[in-house]
Every structure is written in structure tokens, then in C-alpha cells.
Computed example of a mutant assay.
Amino acid sequence: MTRASSVAIAAVAVAGLTVGLLPAAANASASTSASAPPRAGASQRSVSPIHQVVLQGAVNVRDLGGYRTYDGAQVRYGLAYRADALNKATDPDLSTLARLGLREVVDFRVPLELQYDGPDRLPAGAAPTSRPVTDSGLYAQMLSAIGSKDPATQDVMLGHGRAEALMRTEYQAFVSDPAARVQFGATLKDLATSRGPVLFHCTSGKDRTGWESYVLLRAVGVPAATAEQDYLASNGFRAAADAGVRAGLKQAGIMQNPDLLIPLQEVRSDYLNAALAQLSSQYGDLYGYLTRGLGLTLKDLTALRTHLVP
């Protein structure tokens, strides 16, 4: 197999991490369908309410409304949505998304992800906004590891805690990288001023999207524990599709030990804590991060709260 072919296979496999879709040879062993609603895991049962937007081409699309704030108010439904990539949205999905009345769709994916996965498919009226946020080379690392098809190489690159370390590095960069802060801050400002619903997403809808969702909920007064539960809920929504990807990679002979991918497929409190530790080190507290880090003014924060919380 040529290097180009290996990279192509890896790219399709990594793209499959988003919705559980694989090449035909690998997909034959997958036991789940991307169109089937994900079964709620323990983390989802402990969070109420979570409103999923059920699509065929994405599995982690949710309304961020419904959460209670410290003062007993409730985040409005229908204004802020989080998602995984929409490049595989089907025609019925476009109809579903159109009913949300989206005004803007913010895409946090970097150019390499767009190169292999393709742009979003969006309904009319939803303006696409590209705001790439660093993944600290994680996507390229996964392409390289999977594309090698070599168990020893994959173990060296992802095993023995290395995958977890990659994830912690990525989360620290969400806070430390100046360009990432600009993109996250601009999206929060859009949410504060938009005349309609805004959706933001990355590839799997769990890391860059998970961090922005956590920060947004905290910024409008949702307690930290509740915001963390929303973050962790991605594991339940993604579990079946991600397990199907691992099974398919093994069946296709691409990975002997696809469980090496589990730390990359999951969200974990440890990863979130890496970002929060970086936040504390650089800015002291959440307010410092929102203002000095993301560039939000007190007026911006007031507008965000007023817009999202009645």
C-alpha cells in the first residue's frame, strides 16, 4: 500500500470518528447506525434536561437550553446549539436544521479537518462562519497513527498514556493559545448579539465544542457541576458510534488494538481539569479568563446573560 493510500484510509477512519461511518470493508462489522438515536449513558441520566437534535449524519447535536442557573433562572431553549460536524448532514437533516431557524453556524475545525472531511451542509439562512481553533495537531497525529496500519507504531504513538497526554495538551491550548481565545471569544459575542439561534461545532462536538459550551454555561450562571455534566454527556451520545468505529477498524485490519483510540474518543473530567488549571494559572478565575482572555467586556457578559437567560 502506498503512503497516499494509507493516509487516505486514515482520513476516512478519522472522519468516521465523528458519526461512526467507515469504508465498506470496515463498516461491515459496525453494529450501530448513525441514524439511530444514541442511548443515554449514566452521565445523561444525571443531567436534566438535555434536548438532543436527532440527525442522521451527526450524533452529538444538542440545545444548550434548559439548565438552571445559581439564582434559579433557566437558560432559554432554541438560542444556542452545540454539535459535531455537519459535513455528513442528509437532506432530511437539512430540513430538521432549517426548523431550528439557525442564523449562524460556527465551525471550529482546522483546515486539515476540512480538507479530509469536507464543509458543512447547511440549510438556507444559516450563515457559515469559519473560526478554526487549534487541536494541537491531534487530527494529524490520528491520521498518522491509523494510517501506519502498524500495531507497534500505533502503540508507540497512542499507548501508555500518550493519547491522554495529547488530550490534556489540547485542552491547555484552548486557554493558552491566543488565536483560540480570539475564536472562542468572538463566538460568545455572537451569541450575545445574534438576532437568531447560533450553532457551534468542531469535528466530534466534544472537545473544542465541549470547552466552549462549558464556558458559555458558566458565563451565564450555570453551576460548574452542571456545566461539567453537560460536557461529560458527550460520552453517552457518542458511545455507540465510536464503538462501531473501533470494531470496523479492527475488522478491516487497520488497527489491531483500536481501544488505543478510546482516550481520544472520550471526554473526561481530567481533560476539562487541564483546561481549568491552565485558566487558573493564567487568569486566576473565570471572570479573568472571560475578560482578559476572551476579550469580553462587562457589557458583553451582561448582554449574553440577558439574551440567554430570561
Rank of each mutant, 00 (worst) to 15 (best):
E170M: 13
T90Y: 10
L102D: 05
P119M: 10
V215M: 04
A89T: 12
E113N: 05
T134D: 03
S204M: 15
T203R: 10
N87T: 13
G159H: 14
L143G: 00
N87G: 09
E113C: 08
L122M: 02
G125F: 11
M167V: 06
G210H: 10
F184G: 01
F174D: 00
D93W: 03
P119D: 10
D117M: 12
P132S: 15
K149F: 11
A180C: 10
T134M: 08
R109I: 05
M167I: 06
P128S: 05
E164W: 07
G159P: 08
Y214V: 10
Q154G: 00
V133T: 03
T134F: 04
A98P: 06
S148W: 01
D177C: 12
Y214L: 10
L191K: 04
E104N: 13
L112Q: 14
D207I: 06
D155P: 02
L122H: 02
P111S: 15
R208G: 07
D150Y: 03
E104W: 15
P178C: 15
D135K: 02
T90Q: 15
T129F: 13
K206N: 03
T129D: 12
R109K: 08
A163S: 13
S194N: 12
S95N: 14
L158N: 02
S194A: 12
G147L: 00
H160A: 12
V110D: 01
H201V: 09
R181Q: 07
P178K: 07
D135R: 04
Q141R: 15
A173W: 01
K189P: 06
G205R: 03
A179G: 11
L114R: 11
V105E: 04
T193V: 11
A165I: 02
T187H: 04
V215K: 02
L166A: 00
A165K: 11
L217W: 00
A140I: 03
V198M: 03
D190E: 15
A173I: 05
T169Y: 07
A126S: 05
S136G: 09
L114G: 04
A124M: 11
P111T: 13
A163T: 02
E113L: 02
V133Q: 01
L216N: 01
L166D: 00
A165R: 09
A127T: 14
E212N: 13
V182A: 13
D207V: 01
E212R: 08
D190Y: 06
Q115W: 13
E212W: 02
L216C: 08
P197C: 14
Q172I: 05
T169W: 03
R131S: 04
L217G: 04
L97H: 06
S136A: 08
D155W: 11
E113F: 02
L158C: 07
S144H: 15
A173R: 08
L122K: 05
R168H: 09
Q183R: 15
S136W: 09
S204K: 10
D135E: 14
